[in-house]
Every structure is written in structure tokens, then in C-alpha cells.
Design a protein around this nucleic acid. Structure first.
Lengths: 348, 348
DNA sequence: TTGAAAGCGGTACCAC
DNA sequence: GTGGTACCGCTTTCAA
């Protein structure tokens, strides 16, 4: 394993010249540069990032902190980040910070403090005050995707808009008994809260505040399934449409409906938010957000800030786009009588 | 940001003593150790892993290479690894090496060559010859999970056994027209090949070689769905049972069956391999492998090797365990007449 | 345009 | 037990 001094010696130049030739910074004649690179090549020279970091302070590594990797949204964002970093030759160190675990504490207190990265991307982190303080004292730029916080650059989707748009779509189809499915458990994510707010806003604006209903559900596919099985059981009290907090929950609800013999969309319309990879096979109408794109964008913003730290942090807010498939349909007027009769589930 | 020399100065000792006191190696009196740690604490001293690496050669970082992070098995293994490393205070650098991409080439040629890790865990990598060569020349210990290769320590599941056991379960229930679903596309994974072999072995052993059938499918949930929709369309040529190469494909098949009005398990038995998080909600009979456990085990093996490199690499082979739920049932003798009449799908 | 030398922040050897 | 010192592999003034 040869170092830069080996390269220098064989090329008949000094270490400094070799360094300049290889890193591309500083004056080196074309001739010597060619010679040095040739020698380096023949020796299979690989610079020690470690040694370089020690003197430059740059690690060529980006830290990514997220609470889950096994949920669609997070995995997609991660892939987006990964790809963007790969193109730039940067490493990615992953920190899996599940809410409420001792591991999370450890990550914030020990791991992040080591600063083995030039910048941090926090995905759906939703840090508490202590955690935000820690993030700040690290003294490295942070870009948040979704789980926003002040004091960091942010890439996010307009959750309020997405949920509002979803609800409006159903209202426009004639639905009145529209329930919101998802969230409300312990560790309730802010995302789900904002989406619930968007739903509420749309309902109230349409004069449907009496029809408002929130069905509590774990925000996973099986979670949506379980809650929907409960909620759809009683035909009399069944909503005619559901706004799900995300596609996983929406798909869970569709599967539940099928099991219960409730036809989608004729008996029940379901709309989600995401455009999950399964959305197509379930003909799910949804609001598309592109997590992969958000990941790439986060990297870009981080790089910009690293290149020019003077630039003020700015938030990028993306709007989800309605994708109409076959899980939503106009309310059958025949059934609407029953629907109007329906009672609301849960309460707010 | 204070360094070890600051700590040393304020504690009134030399750098070397401070180093010994903090790293815990070498003789230091209890008194001075206490003093040094107190000063370090008060200063908020965080050692530079970088500087330490430079001299010790240890990075306190493990590299993980996998082709996907957005598939259940991989995400689970990743979480297992992550957790095990977290407990040991080690960082995890993730390399996403999708087969057949330029990114993968880049990872093998550039990223891994930098050796910014003490060891590597390769999950389902299935490296080709070139890639294996590169892995070897890195000169760092490698533990493979599943996507085995020679010359590395291996954690794996006995794929042949799992598929064989799954097939035998169906045979024991009286099925004869049993199809294997999954694999056979370009980039056909070795795992799926081995599972197909296990299925074939069981079929032949039971004298059912005439009933053998392989339905080609992309190995994802939507992939299984699409292939099953095609394959289950013709009631005359429909198998009475399916062995799916993994739970995602199995669940896709169940969803397809429901769509087509084919009752599971009365009209069609389906068995998978995995025990996916969705298995419960689909009552899927399956062979449980615990990817999270495999991840933890890989870390353990890597650590052992790092502690004592002289120890020879050994393979750990885990056996999947049959979990009977409600997607498999005894063949209804009434229908078996039709079944025996059935034709096989695809060919081998 | 190139080279010599001083560190970056630690560890480890060796003498005391 | 403790301190002095060389050095890990590279970048970066500063002179030449």
C-alpha cells in the first residue's frame, strides 16, 4: 500500500509537488503532472482520506439521520441521497435514530458529536429541543427533509396542501362523510398532524365540520389495515370516503375493504398521499410526492452551503401532485342517503 | 473545540498520560485518571477518530454493501447491523450497489478502495469474479450475508431447505399441481435459483416431476401480483398451490387471487419464505428467516475476526422455520380431479 | 514552478 | 506511573 511519498520519489519530485499534481490545486507544470499521475496510476495509489481530513478538516462524508429505513418514504429518500452522493464521490454514514430509544440518545450524544462528516441530512427526524440544541452545537450544516426544525435548511412537502387537495378531490366527487385515517398514537408524527389539519381545513371550508372524523391508526400498511377493519365493520356508520395520511395506510384500508366486501371505489373512495410503489397495483388515487427527488435536492442544498457557507439557508417546499386512479369515484346518489345518515367515527 | 493537549495541559500531565487515561490502555494511577477524565468532561473533549485512525489504522467504522435498501429483507438486515454496531459505538457507512449500474462499478473501484472501514458486510451482494477480486485486494475482512462468495465469512439461510420444506408442506396437504413463483428474469438472483432447486428436489422426490412448473416473476410484491394475475387467469390450467420465492411475491399472488375471485386457501394454497411484516395480515403460511438476527450475527462474526484475525472464517447457516397460518390448506378432494387434469404453466 | 518543513490530533515506544 | 518524542499520511505556507 503505497503513500504519496512513494509516488513522489518514483516520479522524482517532492511530496508537495506530488500532492499538488494529484489534488489539482496549485501550480504544477503539465509535464510533471502527467508524470506524477502516471506513477500514481501504476502504483495503484489511493490517497488516505483520513490523513487529508486531519489537515483540511473535510471528511468527504455526509451523515444521514433518520428514524426508519424500512418504510417506503424513508428508503426512497435514502436512495436519492445515496445516488447524489455517489456521483460526487462522497461517502454516506447512516444513523438510525428511532424515536424514544436509548440508541437515539446515544446517536445524538456520542455519534454525532464525533463530527465524522462535513454535513448532516436529517430525514423526518422531528427532533425535540434538546436534540435541536445538540444539532446546532455540532457546528456542521444540517439540511432537513420533512421533519423540519428551525435553524436548518429545509426540503419539505407542503403537507397541509396535500391533505387539503386530497380532501377537496373527494368533496368535489360529492362525498360528505369523509374520514381521515392515520396518526394519533403515541409518538404521533408532526407530518400526520399537519395532514390532519389540512383535511380539517378543507372540511370546514366546505361547511362539513359536522362530518369530520379521525380514525386513529398506526402509520404502516398493517396498521391502516387493522384500523380500517374496525372502522368499516359497521355498514351504517361507515364513511363513504377516506383520506389516508399516506399510501401505506391507504392500501391497508383498501385491503381491509376488500376483505369486508366493501367495494372500492363504488362503496368507498380511498385517497392517499405518496404515490407509493404499490399504488399502481391497487389503482390508488393519491398525491404524488417524490421522495427520491427530495433526497437529491437535500444533497444539492447541502453542497451549495458547503461551497459557500455565507449563503443564507432557504427552504424548498414542494407541492404534491394529484394522480387520479381508480380508488376514488363520484358518490353514488342512491347510497348518499345512507351516507348522510351515517355517524362519525372517533372524535376530535 | 479542544484537543487532547488542552486536556493534558489543564490536568497538569503530558499528552501521553492524557491519552492513556482516556483510552484506558496503559498504566495510569487512579488519581490522575480521575483528574484527566474530569478535565476532559468539563471541556467537552471529543477525541478525533480521524487522528486516532491515522496512527492505529482502525477507523471504528464498518462498511455495508447491499444492492437494495427498499426491500424488506435488506432493510431488516440493515437495521440489525445498525443496532449491533450502535451498541459497540461503531459507525456504519452504507454503499448501495445495484447490479448492473455504473454506480456499482464506481463503488467497487473507487469507494471501497479507500478502505474507510475496518471491515465490510456484504448483504445479498452476489459479486461477480471481478468484484470478488476487488473485495479480496482491499485486504479487510468481509462477512457476507446471503449473497455468498468463497473467501469470505458467511451468514446464510439454507435456501434449498426452506424451499424444499415449503414444497413438502404442500405435498403433505395433498397437492400435486404445485407451481414455483418467482425469479427467472434477467439478473436472476442466486437465492431464487437455489430456492427453485429446493422446490424441484422436493417435487422430484415425491414423484411429481410431471407436475413441476415455474412461473417467472419479478421478485417484488407488484411483480408477484402481475405474474399471478396472468398465471391464475385460466381456471383449467391453474395450479392448486404455489410456492413463492419470498413473501413479497407470495402476498402479490394472494392479492391477485382475491382480485380474480380465487379463494385462498380453499381454491389455492400459497406459501412463502421470509415471515414478512405483512405475513400476519394476509395469514400467510411461510418459512421464517430472521434477517435482523442475521444482521446482528454478521456484526458479531466480523468483530470476532477483527479481535482475532487468526481464527479461520466459518459459515453460519440458519434454517428457516415453518410458520403455519391460513394461506395453505388440504387439497379439497372434489377439486383434485380438476387439478390432476390441469396443465403446467411455463416450462423449465 | 518546485521543495523544505511545519503541523493536523492523536498513539506508542522508550527512557526515566 | 509518567513524560519526551517520533510518526501516521497528507496539505499548506513560505522560500527558493
Amino acid at each position: 500500500m503505497s503513500g504519496i511519498s512513494d509516488v513522489a520519489r518514483l516520479a522524482g519530485v517532492s511530496k508537495s509537488t506530488a500532492s499538488r499534481a494529484l489534488s489539482g490545486s496549485g501550480y504544477v507544470s503539465e509535464k510533471t503532472r502527467a508524470r506524477v499521475t502516471a506513477v500514481a496510476e501504476s502504483l495503484g495509489y489511493v490517497p488516505s482520506t483520513n490523513a487529508a481530513s486531519l489537515v483540511t478538516g473535510r471528511t468527504q462524508n455526509i451523515g444521514v439521520v433518520m428514524p426508519y429505513v424500512n418504510r417506503w418514504f424513508f428508503a426512497e429518500v435514502l436512495e436519492g441521497i445515496q445516488q447524489a452522493l455517489l456521483e460526487r464521490g462522497l461517502d454516506l454514514t447512516l444513523y438510525d435514530a428511532k424515536p424514544g430509544t436509548s440508541g437515539r440518545t446515544r446517536i445524538f450524544e456520542d455519534f454525532l458529536a464525533r463530527k465524522r462528516f462535513d454535513g448532516l441530512i436529517a430525514v423526518g427526524l422531528e427532533p425535540d429541543h434538546d436534540e435541536i440544541d445538540r444539532l446546532i452545537t455540532i457546528g456542521r450544516p444540517v439540511v432537513s427533509v420533512v421533519g423540519s426544525s428551525e435553524a436548518t435548511t429545509v426540503v419539505e412537502v407542503d403537507d397541509d396542501y396535500a391533505a387539503r387537495r386530497a380532501t377537496e378531490h373527494l368533496i368535489a366527487l360529492g362525498h360528505r362523510d369523509i374520514a381521515f385515517l392515520g396518526g394519533g398514537m403515541t409518538h404521533w408524527a408532526q407530518v400526520d398532524r399537519r395532514r390532519l389539519d389540512g383535511y380539517l381545513g378543507a372540511m370546514i371550508a366546505a361547511g362539513l365540520s359536522d362530518h369530520v372524523s379521525h380514525i386513529v391508526s398506526v402509520v404502516t400498511l398493517p396498521g391502516g389495515y387493522a384500523s380500517a377493519v374496525d372502522a368499516l365493520g359497521d355498514a351504517r356508520a361507515r364513511p363513504t370516503a377516506i383520506v389516508a395520511t399516506c399510501d401505506e395506510v391507504a392500501i391497508g384500508a383498501i385491503i381491509a375493504a376488500r376483505r369486508l366486501g366493501v367495494q372500492v371505489p363504488s362503496d368507498l373512495s380511498v385517497i392517499g398521499i405518496d404515490d407509493h410503489e404499490f399504488a399502481g397495483m391497487f389503482s390508488l388515487t393519491t398525491l404524488r410526492q417524490s421522495p427520491r427527488e427530495q433526497g437529491r435536492m437535500a444533497v444539492e442544498m447541502l453542497m451549495n452551503h458547503l461551497d459557500d457557507p455565507s449563503e443564507p439557508p432557504k427552504a424548498v417546499r414542494m407541492r404534491a401532485q394529484l394522480v387520479v386512479r381508480n380508488s376514488t369515484a363520484a358518490l353514488d346518489p342512491q347510497r348518499s342517503a345512507v351516507a348522510i345518515d351515517g355517524r362519525q367515527h372517533g372524535n376530535l
